[in-house]
Nucleic acid binder design. Structure first.
Length: 94
DNA sequence: TCCGTGACTGACG
DNA sequence: GCGTCAGCCACGG
């Protein structure tokens, strides 16, 4: 049985290019819809570069934080992958 | 086992 | 629309 941590990593790694998921969605898919906070904690501690954590955004579409950096680089990266953004600068959730 | 921490979320005022 | 509060959960010491 994979630990919650491992599930989260696996799920995030599975997110296709040009697509994004919210922390809540990842948490739900990992087994606990309310563990969104735990997901954030795991991502923050995780250092595996093969995990496209920049594809994980907040439920309100905000990019949240990315390895200590606030938004910007994460947002640009997502745009390059084809993710749709609103004029307000938030991610257009599917 | 208990406690502190945090890349979150939804509800209120 | 924005700031604050409290609940939520996994992890490490």
């Amino acid at each position: 049985m994979k630990s919650f941590n491992q599930k989260v990593i696996d799920i995030v790694t599975t997110i296709p290019r040009g697509k994004v998921m919210t922390y809540g969605q990842v948490a739900a898919r990992a087994g606990n819809a309310r563990a969104s906070r735990a997901v954030g904690t795991i991502m923050a501690k995780n250092t595996d570069i093969s995990v496209p954590c920049h594809r994980v955004v907040r439920s309100d579409g905000g990019v949240g934080m990315y390895n200590g950096l606030r938004g910007t680089s994460k947002q640009v990266l997502l745009k390059k992958e084809g993710v749709q953004f609103t004029k307000r600068g938030t991610v257009a959730l599917q």
